[in-house]
Every structure is written in C-alpha cells, then in structure tokens.
C-alpha cells in the first residue's frame, strides 16, 4: 500500500540506502566491461542517432560506440554498493578516447562527496575507464538525489522500482 509523501524505505531489491550509510571516499570497486556490436546497435536505437561512425566505419578503423554508452557501468558500480533509486541530477563527462567494440575496459569508481540542498540529499560519485594498455577512455562524475521527496518526509513503504537493475544496455 503506497503512502503519500514518504521516502520509500525498501523495494524488491532490499532496503534503500540512507544518506548516513553513504561514505565519502569509499571505493565502488571496479568492473570489466566490453562493448559489443549489439550494445552499440541498442544505444543508437535508444537515442535514434545512427551516425556512420556508430553504424558502419569511422576514422579509428572500425565502428565506434556513441560516447554516452559510458553512462551505465559507473551506475552499476554505484548500485552494487548502494540501493538508491532517486533521480539523476548532474552529469559531468569527458570523452578522452573512442569506445571500441571488443575492447575490455576496466571501470573504477568511488564516492566523491555528499551534501544536503533544498531539503534533499545528494551523493556524488565518480569513475574512470581505462583500456588494457592503461589509456584513459572516459572520466565521469555524477550527482544523484537520493529521493525526489524532501528529506524531512519519513522513510516508509515499499517502492516498485529499484536503482539496482540488470547489468545490460
């Protein structure tokens, strides 16, 4: 039974992480991530952007992925550590080198900051991806608001959605 004006306390993936539980400086660990041809196709379809470089060939010798495909792995690292639904608030990204299909990247993240503003709780996390030669491919820093509802609202009730998703495009 949904309650009005509460911050959700749990969902099907378990208890939601609270602001106090999130530790600034904590590593989010790392993951290996390889973009496939199928993943590029899905990203292009989702964004309805079918540039030649993403679909056929590019100046880098083969097709490349749209840079924004990099959104997911850092979010997965965050979700592995904390069950946060919330909403995306800020997105900083730097495209250092193209993301190539078939290349395994190592993505490493950490919690960079947290703060309270406008009666809401925010967490900042950051990540970097490198290729097998150690070249940086992308860097990102994101801010996530833990709840759309103000922090003065009680935590109660069960959510339908969760921040923890299947790790796929």
């Amino acid at each position: 039974m949904a309650q009005d004006h509460v911050r959700i306390a749990e969902d099907a993936k378990g208890k939601r992480a609270t602001y106090d539980e999130i530790e600034v400086g904590q590593t989010l660990g790392s993951m290996e991530w390889m973009v496939t041809e199928d993943m590029i196709n899905q990203q292009c379809e989702m964004d309805m952007d079918y540039h030649l470089w993403f679909s056929v060939d590019s100046p880098w010798g083969r097709r490349i992925a749209p840079p924004q495909i990099s959104y997911r792995p850092p979010r997965w690292l965050f979700s592995r550590a904390y069950n946060v639904r919330g909403l995306f608030y800020k997105w900083e990204l730097e495209n250092v080198r193209p993301i190539m299909p078939g290349v395994t990247l190592k993505v490493t993240g950490s919690i960079a900051d947290k703060y309270v503003k406008n009666d809401r709780e925010f967490v900042v996390y950051q990540a970097e991806a490198v290729d097998p030669e150690g070249n940086v491919i992308f860097r990102t820093r994101r801010t996530h608001v833990l709840d759309f509802v103000e922090r003065t609202a009680p935590r109660a009730g069960k959510g339908i959605d969760s921040g923890i998703k299947p790790e796929k495009i």
């Binding site: 840079p67 909403l87 997105w91 990204l93 495209n95 250092v96 080198r97």
Partner: peptide
C-alpha cells in the same frame, strides 16, 4: 565530430523532470 569523441567535455544539470 572527432573533437567530441576525443576530448569532448560536458557538464549537465537536470533541473526538473
């Protein structure tokens, strides 16, 4: 084009849903 793929930077704020 190439200057976005290599060296592109962006900072966005999602102000409202």
């Amino acid at each position: 084009e190439r200057g976005w793929i290599e060296g592109g930077k962006c900072e966005l704020t999602f102000r409202r849903p």
